[in-house]
Design a protein around this nucleic acid. Structure first.
Length: 431
RNA sequence: UCCUCGGUAGCUCAGUUGGCAGAGCAGCCGGCUGUUAACCGGCGGGCCGGAGGUUCGAGUCCUCCCCGAGGAGCCA
């Protein structure tokens, strides 16, 4: 008999099916046994009554949590069952019967314990919808760029120099030469965009920061795009279209997963329905100060300041034209106010923090040399990057979207560690 | 790096003024014909994070160390 997946069961009401999966939980009452089976696509209740084969009844009694099994029975619509359908079980074939109890019970657990058992934690109920939404977000990003003619071009993960100069890098030994894990693919995208026009990549980046908050991972994924002949305003329009597309696609294709996480997709769709507000850095500072959060003009926004902005708008909001002094060397200055950079951060609603950082890039070689010098960086490691300004320099812009923070916002997850299968956090490299 | 809170059974936690080490869940045994983290009865289960100190007596008080969580800064 051909096996079916639990997600498809509603199409098989009345017929006999074979399910393959794991025992999630079991309950009983007198001469009825309920076995909850999961297969990665969903969770369904199997019912075994006393008139079943005695060996099947005994198995329903004795199989422990997370035993793997094949189960045969008839699908029935049943309002009392979770999910609305259940299976009247006629056969159970154990595939593997654990000898020791599964470490993760169905009651509460502490975070440290769950993180130590992340390889098993991902089997638990809440985790599957989150990881499916992650898949949905990544597909939505790819489809957005593909539809718009962007070419996926990979940036290297092993690099010889820093992108930003400031952020801490993971050092490596590259056959005797110093190397690092990349903290951003951006500089390389600037090169590929001059070859292909419109480019993007999605990949892991690494920050050796001692950050210990619910919004930080040491290893996280960035979706970065770069487009030639795109100016600052066009850059913001592109980012806005991307975020709107991702939210709408996930809301449409993952409504069941969002519902399982008790995330109201109406709230998400409302947040992206209207154009995203744009405020300048200096306007944002005033708004933050008016909200009673302490900060000085010239400083970058801290978490409380971002939250204040996030609450003020209730939608994603662009903060643009930061002081160039607190931004990286590669950002182009605003010609009308040369102390400001033509850049923007996109702050997600509901306190999920910054999800995009982007800018128009410096296109003149002299200007780039000057800004490298101001940042205290030697031009030598950036020779190839300077070359991009020596042959056919064009105005160009790009941005990087934090994939996990975007998932966190869309799925409504309090801590970023649940948005990636194996989170790398401060001092935690296991499992 | 800094600040705060924790570490007691496999898990989640309680433990009074310093005086016999506890509960729920999980496991094992039994009961219940529709359970929804089922429920009811019984049984087994301990280096109280580590070292030192105070005391007749320390899970409890003091000192140092280790580990974890939350937050800050930095960032996406």
């Amino acid at each position: 008999m051909k096996s079916v997946y639990i997600a498809e069961l509603s199409r098989h009401v009345g017929s006999e099916v074979l399910l393959q999966g794991w025992l999630y939980n079991k309950r009983s009452s007198g001469k009825v046994r309920f076995v909850l089976v999961r297969d990665g696509t969903g969770l369904v209740q199997g019912v075994v009554t006393s008139d079943a084969d005695p060996t099947v009844f005994a198995l329903a009694d004795s199989l422990p949590q997370e035993a793997s099994l094949r189960m045969r029975g008839t699908v029935r619509a049943e309002p009392r069952a979770p999910g609305g359908v259940e299976v009247s079980v006629t056969h159970i074939e154990p595939v593997h019967v654990p000898a020791t109890p599964f470490p993760i019970g169905l009651k509460e657990h502490g975070t440290g314990f769950l993180m130590d058992h992340r390889h098993l934690w991902i089997r638990m109920r809440r985790q599957a919808p989150i990881l499916r939404i992650r898949d949905g977000v990544l597909w939505a990003i790819r489809s957005f760029f593909r539809e718009r003619g962007f070419v996926a071009t990979e940036s290297p993960v092993l690099v010889g120099t820093s992108v930003e100069g400031t952020t801490t890098l993971f050092p490596l030994d590259y056959f005797g030469a110093p190397a690092y894990l990349s903290q951003s693919g951006q500089l390389y995208l600037e090169a590929t965009c001059a070859a292909l026009g419109k480019v993007y990549w999605i990949g892991p980046v690494f920050r050796a920061e001692k950050s210990k908050t619910r919004r930080h991972l040491i290893e996280f994924w960035m979706a970065e795009a770069e487009q030639a002949f795109l100016d600052h305003d066009g850059n913001l329009a592109l980012q806005e279209a991307l975020v709107r597309h991702v939210v709408e696609a996930v809301a449409a294709e993952h409504s069941r997963d969002l519902a399982e996480l008790e995330r109201d997709s109406a709230v998400l769709l409302r947040a992206v329905a209207e154009p995203f507000p744009r405020v300048t850095y200096h306007e944002a500072v005033s708004l933050v100060q008016a909200a009673g959060v302490e900060m000085e003009a010239g400083d970058d926004f801290g978490a409380p300041a971002e939250d204040a902005l996030s609450q003020r708008f209730g939608r994603p909001v662009f903060v643009e034209r930061f002081p160039a002094a607190i931004k990286p060397f590669y950002m182009k200055r605003d010609p009308e106010q040369p102390d400001l950079a033509l850049c923007a951060d996109l702050i997600a609603p509901e306190g999920y923090g910054e999800i995009i950082g982007g800018s128009q890039r410096v296109d003149a070689e002299e200007e780039l040399l000057h800004q490298l010098d101001e940042a205290g960086l030697s031009g030598e490691p950036y020779r190839w990057y300077l070359d991009l300004r020596r042959w056919g320099a064009v105005p160009h812009s790009g941005f990087g979207l934090g994939v996990e923070r975007t998932i966190q916002w869309i799925a409504g997850i309090p801590h970023i560690r649940e948005t990636i299968p194996f989170p790398r956090t401060l001092d935690r490299l296991y499992p």
